[in-house]
Design a protein around this nucleic acid. Structure first.
Lengths: 234, 234
DNA sequence: CGGACGCTTGAGGGTCTTCAAGGAATGTGG
DNA sequence: CCACATTCCTTGAAGACCCTCAAGCGTCCG
């Protein structure tokens, strides 16, 4: 289970502003909506009514596949926009991993503001372009990489996403199954890969969902695909 | 929804207008550029100067990975936009598979037209949203699917993309290596998967790059993940 | 005609998955 | 506060799938 409240950290999931963030100043008047863990902003197939900017918390986008499996498409963090799909229905479901605050903007307002305020449209285009690039990056990295490389990349990505100062300790707030469904692996393989990272002294796991990075250099090297034949050394 | 714009004579790779197409009427004054097969519109890392609308022909977007491998990100067809990346450099290389005609719009003009003509911005947002959804779909389908399912999905996708009437014969215009790099497989596995489809009578290949679909129902079933344990029957 | 290139097919090995069981952590009720 | 149940995580062994290496075949073009 997830910790019900984020009382243990003063500012949960604060992040440095990133390129993919949608400017908050353009949404000052947005309606706020609160989500508790496991609550959904919308489900796959829902009519597209709003776009949402994540003000705080962490969400996950996923699809359910025909065989019942789940593919986690992305994790979304403060500053990110969600809810813009193709056609007029949502392409995937959006679920809160933690407590989440959303800024909600009805689509009609979005289109109106795009006409009234040029920056609104270009900001939207920029965010979508960044998100597209990130998703394409995911395509490139998911394919043809070993489980260890995937996990290393995931941890590093997570570090960058959440970027709490330079602290090399991160709280996943998600179970092994979430990671597995994101990386296209099984829970067992994720667990085994964590074990390898532990054995090599690259990370340690005080708790299952808390990672402490000890050797970020080797983690980066792993993610880059090096050390392919050195995985089993001491 | 989209103007048909049947301005082209029976040029190769005409497609039905699709949701991801950028309206041609918004780019009537664009500068034209011709590419021959294997010629690049831009390379990964190039400065982002224009966006391009593919007027005719087929292109491929790819990245070179650290280990020298190539990941084909997407195939782009007439109506599609390319060249919109994050930051200010191209995220991937864009190469012509066939003869290609591009409509080129400098970025400065793009931004100006977004302010002058509201529909331009919303069209851009819509195209990006569709492309994002397609890419996410790719993420979902590349992971955890067998080689046969991947290939079946690829063929069906290609059929939809190129959509020449209802003819169940399609010209790939690409080698096995392209398919392999797109699906995250090796050339050999792609070849073997083609062989399985042939053996089962689902498709036939008069030439290596020409596919004739005989049993589209079973192809769809395969792509959906059914028949997992019937692959070796009849 | 011969070489180059791409496609196919075979054998062996590595990685991940599946199936299965044990252990750790968390929550509930006594 | 502790026993118990549930859930999640870990670890093990066997098997499936794909990759690698390698050779054979077809086509195209010089």
């Amino acid at each position: 289970m997830l910790p019900a409240s984020a009382s243990d950290s003063p500012t949960p999931y604060r992040r440095l502003p990133r390129n993919g963030d949608f400017s908050e100043t353009l949404l000052v008047d947005a309606h706020m909506r609160h989500l508790e863990p496991h609550e959904h902003a919308f489900y796959e197939g829902d009519a597209q009514t709003h776009i949402y900017r994540i003000k705080s918390g962490m969400m996950r986008l996923y699809r359910l596949l025909a065989d019942g499996r789940r593919q986690v498409i992305a994790f979304r963090l403060p500053g990110h926009l969600i809810g813009l799909g193709e056609h007029e229905t949502q392409f995937c479901s959006a679920e809160a991993l933690t407590d989440v605050v959303l800024q909600c903007v009805p689509l009609s307002i979005v289109y109106r503001r795009m006409q009234e305020e040029p920056r609104f449209g270009s900001e939207l285009v920029r965010c979508l372009a960044v998100e597209l690039a990130e998703t394409r990056n995911q395509v490139a990295f998911l394919n043809r990489r070993s489980a260890l490389e995937k996990l290393a990349t995931f941890i590093l990505g997570f570090l960058v996403w959440t970027g709490e100062d330079t602290k090399l300790e991160l709280e996943l707030h998600m179970g092994r199954e979430d990671i597995a469904d994101y990386l296209g692996l099984t829970v067992e393989t994720v667990s085994r890969s964590f074990a390898k990272l532990k054995t090599q002294g690259i990370v340690s796991l005080p708790r299952a969902q808390t990672i402490v990075i000890h050797d970020i250099g080797r983690l980066i090297a792993l993610a880059a695909g090096a050390f392919k034949e050195e995985e089993s050394d001491s």
